[in-house]
């Protein structure tokens, strides 16, 4: 009697869960993101430092013109598992690559003698500077659309790095019958509802939405110092990986700690279970 109740409950729970997972759709009518085959996915995933460096270069040379990353500091680039981590310079503030990269940027500051607003060369302690002084200026410079900050973009979108990679490689000619407004572009991976702009069969509204960003990448646009072929596909994957790192720089530490914690807890559970059975051995229950 008791057993069948438990079984029934378990079945009910499992059925509900199965329904839940089966009916999952891509967010907002967008196409489900492609799999970028990233090295950092899964419980034992790690970032590929070479990929992070290439991704940073793409961000630096293409994206940073419009997109800020203002929750990331230069010194983060030199932290463990980051793009410019080096065993020799374990303190990222002393990392020469980090210092050099920081010095390439101009950051806003105040002259301590005159009080005027000035710009100076960046230091590792500085945050990555924004290309615009504020949101209004960013909108004015981009036809009213605000290029979002990329610091946590991989956490802010379903699909994470796969979504970013798919979006960047997803630009294509809109299907005939789709009315595209001026200043926006069709992308099947972009969240949106195109029913209002579709003149075709209403049971087959195209997936995706309109994005204000024009296709930002082109083959060969960024030269990779390690000689990797610079295709749009490669650039997209690399910058998606870099954004994934920026969004979650502690991911590798987190997973490694997790393995240790789970092993410890499993061992602890085993010991405690034996202790429990020992204690209860002589009690009829």
């Amino acid at each position: 009697m008791k057993l069948s109740f438990v079984k029934t409950l378990a079945f009910a729970a499992a059925a509900s869960l199965a329904l839940a997972s089966g009916a999952a759709q891509a967010a907002g009518g967008a196409k489900h993101p492609k799999d970028g085959g990233f090295s950092f996915e899964g419980p034992f995933g790690t970032f590929d430092q070479g990929q992070l460096q290439r991704g940073f270069k793409v961000y630096r040379e293409v994206c940073a013109a419009c997109h800020s990353m203002n929750l990331v500091s230069f010194r983060n680039l030199g932290e463990k598992n980051g793009p410019f981590w080096s065993e020799e310079h374990s303190n990222p503030n002393d990392n020469p690559y980090v210092k050099a990269i920081a010095a390439e940027f101009e950051v806003a500051d105040v002259d301590s003698e005159t009080g005027d607003a000035i710009t100076r060369k960046g230091t590792p302690a500085d945050r990555l500077p924004s290309p615009y002084p504020n949101e209004a200026a960013a909108r004015a410079g981009n036809g009213g659309a605000y290029p979002p900050d990329l610091s946590v973009m991989a956490k802010a979108r379903h699909g994470g790095a796969d979504y970013i990679y798919s979006l960047l490689t997803g630009y294509r000619q809109p299907p005939a019958g789709l009315k595209v407004q001026p200043g926006v572009y069709y992308n099947p991976y972009m969240a949106g509802d195109l029913a209002a702009y579709w003149t075709g069969d209403h049971d087959h509204v195209p997936a995706g939405g309109f994005i204000a960003m024009p296709p930002p990448l082109a083959d060969g646009q960024v030269t990779f110092d390690d000689g990797t072929r610079s295709t749009v596909e490669q650039q997209s994957k690399d910058v998606a990986a870099f954004i994934a790192w920026a969004s979650d720089p502690k991911a590798t530490v987190r997973k490694q700690t997790g393995v240790s914690v789970m092993l410890y807890l499993a061992l602890f559970a085993g010991i405690t279970y034996v202790s429990y059975r020992r204690i209860w051995r002589n009690v009829a229950h």
């Binding site: 987190r254 997790g258 393995v259 914690v261 789970m262 807890l265």
Partner: peptide, 11 residues
């Protein structure tokens, strides 16, 4: 319970 908790927190 903490094992399940840890699975979420860490992975």
């Amino acid at each position: 319970f903490l094992l399940m908790f840890a699975a979420f927190v860490f992975f």
